[in-house]
Design a protein around this nucleic acid. Structure first.
Lengths: 343, 343
DNA sequence: TTGTATGCGTTATCAG
DNA sequence: CTGATAACGCATACAA
């Protein structure tokens, strides 16, 4: 009695063979209703539970492996939550591995997930580049908000996003608009895309981009907090500073708000600010950041659907990119220019 | 060649029997080093990976099931991240299920985890009460920041926590101190504990508790956002309002800050505020909330250790409560009373 | 030290 | 429609 009951126990309890029990489990319609009920009752009596490990030896798993970076990062956590929820609603379970932001962990985490013979692998955000070599092309692999060649990537249209931001600002009368993307050095493609959108938006509005209004950080490794904050501070302290800033990330925008606060620069009275991501805290009253929303729910649903559509025969290793349109959330960090000056 | 290689493939590739391969896998020291190396090489060549599902049938799983509420809640996400990280460092993987805050989901989620024959179950925060009946006493079950009878619960000492908060405030000269705990109605024990600490702190300081300074919500279901906000607003608008408030939750403190902002009540100039939890955003410059920290890292390490210490023989179903001491994080939402008045 | 036989809980196949 | 039996990949006990 110590060990959990098996279908054999159920079978003998119900007075049928274990095959019949299995057929009931598989929802085969071929079972005599009366027997079926007897089996169901027996299961109930014995507190029977399927042994997922044994099942996976004969069938495909219903577990999806998800690899996330640091879950302390709200964007990652919210994305993971969304994926988990949608997987569950489709009958999948989620085996979640978090690298904690340590790239060296990726290799180990992917390997473990593979050992569990997960039905699919979903990489969240920046994770996955290094370890992708481990996984063959017999299970579907999806990148959400990140990309890899020969795989399906689901991303937001970053170009459209920052262009949206610029359009919003120009519509408010701003002409001196800056762009800050430091902190995104880890993901050069993302940074570049968002910068491109900024340029396009400015060009469309017939505005010039002043190099002094640009704060990008490329190439070298991520700057230390202190240094980074100093960069922002210097940026905000320059004379003739922009009247509005597009930040490439909500977290950057938060940092800018913090520095502005320290420098007694009021937002939005003295400076308008737009972020990118729409993490949960951005909508908090105390922050109320105007930002570009990433459609997390669509990310998740597209990913799950792709996973479900996967046919092992077709091997599927083409580079594919689903790009979803961003939307703008207008809140209280942006204000019309003449109102700014009037204040 | 379509299907992943097994130990048999490895064995024939290395020219040994599959037992030898198994022994290598089990790190048995009884294998000839030279053969061992051959086996290792063969595994490498074939890209061999252990089949976790097959292994579970003969050994205990190395997967820990974690059930969390809404991962959009930063406290839950941070806790989950911590548990994941520490599990990984001890060689466990985490199968994460999230109820999304929907109690009805608990039953399903627990069941699924049990089907996977997880080595242990860890419930995070408020989750688990309803579904605990499903799980027997053959695997260890731990509640982190929540509790259940006949189980191990790991919590912070809430009484000590709010008392710490009161002591901090009285040391700053505050005498009119309020307590707000609405929003915690879901977890009456937690609410009650924190209120008790508040009372003790006040009593120790020889201060009276004015009923007008209390905003608790018990019994009925959680109030709607609007109503709740209105309550806080009314509270803050009363004449002779407290000079300091202890909030039972960082999220409540954030709401209070938001309302105060709307009412032009400055924090900390006009009002000091202490939270509870120390969620990540609380340390952000723009918030900088003085708060009581919950030791998430210790929660996780105690939980994992308990899981590892578990011996199936002893069945272990005693009610046990590990209570960890809270610490106070003093930031910028609290200020000495005379400074307040001076401003 | 290595090889062989057997069991784990389930599903798939095929005979009745 | 049901039941007997053979996989599945791995671990273990025991024999060589």
């Amino acid at each position: 009695m110590r060990k959990p009951p098996t279908i054999i126990d159920v079978a003998s309890q119900a007075g049928v063979s274990k095959s019949t029990v299995s057929n009931v489990l598989q929802h085969k319609g071929t079972v005599n209703p009366e027997l079926r009920q007897r089996v169901l009752d027996a299961m109930d009596m014995l507190d029977y539970r399927v042994h997922a490990g044994a099942r996976v030896m004969r069938q495909q798993s219903n577990v999806i492996g998800v690899i996330a970076g640091d879950l302390g990062n709200p964007f990652n956590a919210e994305l993971a939550a969304e994926v988990e929820a949608q997987s569950a609603s489709k009958g999948f379970n989620v085996l979640l591995a978090s690298t904690g932001g340590v790239p060296e962990q990726e290799y180990t985490k992917v390997r473990t997930l593979l050992e569990h013979r997960v039905a699919a692998l979903i990489f969240l955000a920046e994770v996955g580049k290094s370890a992708i070599g481990l996984v063959g092309d017999d299970i579907p692999v999806v990148f959400i908000s990140g990309s890899a060649s020969r795989r399906l990537s689901i991303t937001v249209d970053g170009v459209a996003g920052t262009r949206l931001a610029v359009e919003h600002l120009t519509a408010l009368g701003h002409r001196k608009i800056g762009f800050i993307s430091a902190m995104l050095a880890d993901e050069p493609e993302v940074e570049n895309e968002r910068y491109m959108g900024f340029r396009k938006g400015m060009a469309n509005a017939g505005l010039e981009i002043s190099p002094r209004y640009l704060l990008r950080e490329h190439g070298t490794r991520r700057a230390q907090q202190a240094t980074y904050r100093d960069l922002v501070k210097a940026y905000l302290q320059q004379e003739d500073r922009p009247t509005a800033i597009v930040a490439a990330l909500d977290q950057i925008a938060l940092e800018i708000m913090s520095v502005a606060n320290e420098l007694d620069i009021r937002i939005p009275e003295d400076l308008s600010l737009v972020g990118f991501d729409d993490i949960a805290i951005s909508s908090h009253d105390l922050i109320s950041l105007t930002t570009i929303r990433q459609p997390l729910d669509e990310f998740a649903s597209v990913a799950i659907e792709a996973v479900m559509r996967f046919k092992p025969e077709e091997k599927w290793s083409k580079t594919e990119n689903v790009m979803l349109p961003p939307t703008i959330r207008i809140r209280r960090t942006t204000r019309a220019l003449h109102c700014q000056e009037a204040v």
